[in-house]
Nucleic acid binder design. Sequence first.
DNA 1: ACCTGAACACCGTTCAAGT
DNA 2: ACCTGAACACCGTTCAAGT
Lengths: 226, 226
Amino acid sequence: MTRTPIGSVRSTSAMAKGRVTLSREDVVVAAGRLLDETGIDGLSMRSLARTLGTGPATLYWHVRDRDELLAAVLDDTLSAVEVPADGGWQECLLTLSERMRAALLPRPALVTVLWGASWRLGPTTLRLADETIALVAASGLPDDEVADAYLALIWFVLGFVHAESQAEANAGFAAHEPPGSYPHLSRFNPSTDPAAMHRRFTGGLRHLLAGIAEQAGQHRTEGLRP
Amino acid sequence: MTRTPIGSVRSTSAMAKGRVTLSREDVVVAAGRLLDETGIDGLSMRSLARTLGTGPATLYWHVRDRDELLAAVLDDTLSAVEVPADGGWQECLLTLSERMRAALLPRPALVTVLWGASWRLGPTTLRLADETIALVAASGLPDDEVADAYLALIWFVLGFVHAESQAEANAGFAAHEPPGSYPHLSRFNPSTDPAAMHRRFTGGLRHLLAGIAEQAGQHRTEGLRP
DNA sequence: ACCTGAACACCGTTCAAGT
DNA sequence: ACCTGAACACCGTTCAAGT
């Protein structure tokens, strides 16, 4: 893909990578890789620069700041998610949600980027949000309820992936507390093996979708349109 | 409340505050105040130590690390939330959720502490979670669905408060994008004035609770118990 | 256009030593 | 029991200067 004109290489480490000049995409891809290897705390501007064989200042040519970098990694990660084209809106939203879950599960730190959406999001992420809203709107829900139904849906997806990614981190909970101090918390502690997680995910989603469908149905039979 | 024996004061700044020695509570209260004044980024171990007239090392006597400090501030903040005692489980969950919203809205950064629950939580927070689960269980939902219904509920509450707290930060969204690039995102952009937010909050919750009730009802009529 | 070195203004945490 | 100073090992970001 990238040609390597031999005369004009800048740094030995850049040469080792077969690069002449850094592109924004190089930076984002390297950031994703570093995220996978070291987690979100290991992904600093300085450590990323180190893996690219430069100083941190260089990165700021390609990216406004760390938040924009993270949003770009998120955007890159979500580009794997295709919006299903045919089927009813419920089916579509279900498989779309499963694809989002699959895309985010290997990089759960990005859930927090999406959650704290004050961070400026990339075009892929925004397009995905836009099309998801369109599917929710296709339920026939009244306009002023579409946004909240959409939000309940993505919060469920994000919350679920987030919880799933730290299932084992939280597993030791019961061990740290004197038994019986939080009876319900421990009684209803659900199974976290992968198969159960998938069942719980789709089960929860189905309930949400059924709720939306029912609400939309009520609206249809109530309202008399010209 | 705190007596001030005059002979044994340590630092002039501690004296000014009328303290002899620092208690964990002093630290947590000061952290809450600093959070209110400067936001989560302004609340560092060093800045907190500065407002208390000591060095950062001192804080580590009272608190294991920054995460525990934040969990303690959350715990303190949630201690204002009372779990309603009488009424049906739906009513109870509704007013409980409104109280959580009211408690968290002035300190939205704590939503993220609760969300990223890998952080060890305090006793008040855990007791609150436990009693909330108990209320969900009172719906009659089958045991293996209680946890997920509970999660859908708190994710909605947390997501909502989070979104609400940055409503104005996100308000400028439409302005930054070329018009028409994300048609549904802008079309279903709901109102964010306080009254509308409250309506949307309770509306969304009612839908979730109705869904739980219906699911529980189905379970009751299906199952034949001895 | 793209990169660099050096600096600014911070962080969280540890630890031996003090009272 | 509680606090301190000093250090370790980092951060994100800016900016004038280089090619």
